[in-house]
Design a protein around this nucleic acid. Structure first.
Length: 273
DNA sequence: AACGCGCCCTGTCCGC
DNA sequence: TGCGGACAGGGCGCGT
């Protein structure tokens, strides 16, 4: 599921719903979503901490608590973070972790495939981990020159290059494909063969598609929900992702699907060279 | 040492 | 209706 726009949407919802609240108890139903902690360690560490802020880095939800504790949630493919007062009972069938708050509500982590992970850090520990991610694509540091110089150093297909979180933080398969369509670059092209002019178009395309997707509260293909349990609204605006066999919205050619290193890529054979 | 690959796991859909 | 295979937003560890 979730790429930068979906994580960002959840973060904005959570910020409003949980900031300032204290965690009064923690239940772990599916221990395999925890990294480097037993359920007992996780429960003991989180209990009685107060949530100071909620933010995002790459596709991660970063919850800062008092007394030097940071809870980082990566949603994997099917992870959801929802507030218990926003979902109907029984709607969540794979709750892995419950965080009970001081007002009686719960923050629920639900994950059908359990590819998602919850991890606790100290401030310093998270700073270290965070340094391994690349530039935030919506920040001022993500310049055309930055992108062009980075692309020059690699011969992998540009679609794969865009998925590398140590290069650009937060772009996943949907938005990589959409940005490449907007920029007129075929997903299979080697990164180092993208021209300076194309890199500039790609940089703008990445920023535009991410910002537009955030404005629509993300893309729901099947599993993604925001913190209120609602679907995203960007899926009708996808131009190539998941549209194999449909006409290109720009030229009418038939959109193709190719598999690059085990993941689908979609493109218009006429508009993307 | 950059890169491709297999794997983690469940659900859904499609063809037979 | 059932069954097997393909496929799904991600990311890690491995071998080359």
């Amino acid at each position: 599921m979730p790429e930068l726009p979906e994580a960002e949407t959840i973060v904005r919802d959570l910020k409003r719903r949980v900031t300032g609240h204290r965690i009064t108890s923690v239940q772990v139903a599916k221990p395999d979503v925890l990294t480097h902690a037993t359920p007992e360690q996780f429960r003991r560490k989180l209990k009685d901490h107060t949530i100071k802020s909620v933010g995002r880095r790459a596709k991660n939800i970063v919850i800062r608590l008092d007394r030097d504790l940071v809870l980082v949630i990566n949603l994997g493919m099917t992870g959801r973070v929802v507030s218990s007062d926003a979902v109907r009972a029984g709607e969540l069938r794979h709750v892995a972790v419950r965080l009970k708050l001081d007002d009686g509500r719960e923050v629920l982590y639900d994950d059908a495939r359990r590819f998602g992970r919850l991890e606790l850090f100290t401030d310093a520990g998270w700073t270290e981990r965070e340094s391994q991610f690349g530039v935030e694509p919506l920040s001022n540091d993500f310049t055309p020159a930055h992108l062009y110089e980075g692309l020059k150093t690699s011969r992998v297909p540009v679609r794969n290059w865009l998925l590398d979180q140590s290069r650009i933080a937060g772009v996943g398969n949907i938005y990589a494909n959409e940005a490449l369509f907007r920029a007129g670059i075929r997903p299979t092209r080697r990164a180092n063969l993208v021209t300076r002019a194309e890199a500039t178009r790609l940089r703008d395309a990445i920023r535009d598609v991410l910002a537009e997707a955030i404005a629509k509260r993300g893309t729901t293909l099947s599993d993604y929900r925001d913190a209120s349990g609602e679907e995203g609204g960007f899926q009708p605006l996808l131009q190539v992702y998941g549209r194999e066999g449909e006409p290109c919205p720009r030229c009418g050619s038939t959109i193709r699907r190719v598999v690059i290193t085990n993941r689908s890529a979609f493109y218009c054979p006429k508009d993307q060279k």
